[in-house]
Simulated scan of single mutants.
Amino acid sequence: MNDQDTDGLHKALEASILRNEGSWSGSSHSSAAERTLPFQVNGGEWEIDKRLLKMGEMIASGSCGDLFRGTYLGEDVAVKVLRSEHLNKNVWNEFTQEVYILREVQHTNVVQFIGACTKPPQFCIITEYMSGGSLYDFVHKQHNVLEVPILLKIAVDVCRGMCYLHQRGIIHRDLKSANLLMDKDHVVKVADFGVARFQDQGGNMTAETGTYRWMAPEVINHQPYDNKADVFSFAIVLWELITSKIPYNTMTPLQAAVGVRQGLRPGLPENAHPKLLDLIQRCWETIPSNRPAFPDILAELEDLLSHVQEANQRQDDPGTKD
């Protein structure tokens, strides 16, 4: 890697490195080089009546907005509010992109869109309130060490959400534990579609979109990429669930990015289920076409979950014979 490459990475990082990786908007923004969406957000059936929205406590603060808890028509909701002082073309494109995609998706494992305020002075996106918080907080701040059946159930939830998105032609581009939220029943849902996009939307897809510790090498390397970039990010999430560690925790995000493009991956724990370790290694293969697709990953995880549950039942009931 030459000095020019390193300089380029440093420059690209300046805008994104200051953001908190564990927050809901700790990702690099799409650049203006991406084609502007072929529509305007003009509300329509998704425009909510602000008078019926009651704002509560702030849950998180991001680089260009804040996340609040609130109620709308008697339901608990999450409200992502753009800060007017940060409203530029990039932020507006991200906002309109998120509304555009959320309007199009409905699945048990994707956060439910309720509506948006797209008229000045306040722009906001309203989704279901996920009382369990993010997977990032669940694993890293609450220091939960996950048993294999729970870990597999979470992984299956994420996989189902991602299968659905990829079937709809949507690449998330910022899949990480901070963007995976849990509801009160511990169902995990994919969230935060600010940098997501339809694969056939046109224009060149921006390099370095996402968060460095979870980012696929082809994205870091400014190479063409497709939905297999999400599979790479999923491998890092799976590794987080197994180890309860932040990936490359002894490195800065820049060092991690440089390492990943040179073939570096997080160290594999010896005591984890061998089938999980094998799956992780296939999902973070350097060549995207060598990575499995989400439907195949889902089939493997569901099969492994059923085997683990059966084995646990046999342990609980010693009278059961094979």
Rank of each mutant, 00 (worst) to 15 (best):
P266D: 09
S233K: 02
A207F: 04
I246M: 13
H186T: 09
D230K: 03
A191V: 02
L238R: 07
E270R: 14
E218Y: 09
I280Y: 07
E270G: 00
T252Q: 04
V260I: 14
H166Q: 15
I236G: 04
M205R: 09
R265D: 02
I220Q: 03
K275V: 12
Q167I: 12
I220N: 00
A235T: 02
H166L: 14
W239Q: 07
V187I: 06
G203T: 07
I236K: 06
I171T: 08
N290D: 15
L238Q: 07
P288D: 13
S177Y: 03
V260Q: 09
P266W: 04
N221A: 14
C163I: 11
N221Q: 15
F234C: 03
G210N: 01
A178S: 09
V190D: 14
K228S: 12
T250F: 14
E240M: 08
Q199W: 15
L279K: 04
I246R: 13
A256H: 05
S244V: 06
T286M: 10
I287C: 07
P288G: 12
K228T: 12
K245A: 07
P217G: 02
H273C: 10
H273D: 13
K176Y: 07
V231L: 03
N221F: 02
G203P: 08
G263L: 05
P247Y: 07
M162N: 00
T211N: 01
M162E: 07
R197C: 09
N249D: 15
F234M: 06
K176G: 03
Y164P: 03
E240R: 05
D185A: 02
Q199F: 15
A216S: 05
L268C: 11
V195I: 14
R291Q: 07
N249R: 15
A257F: 04
P253N: 15
L238M: 15
P253R: 05
V258Q: 15
L181C: 13
S233C: 05
L181Q: 08
N227L: 08
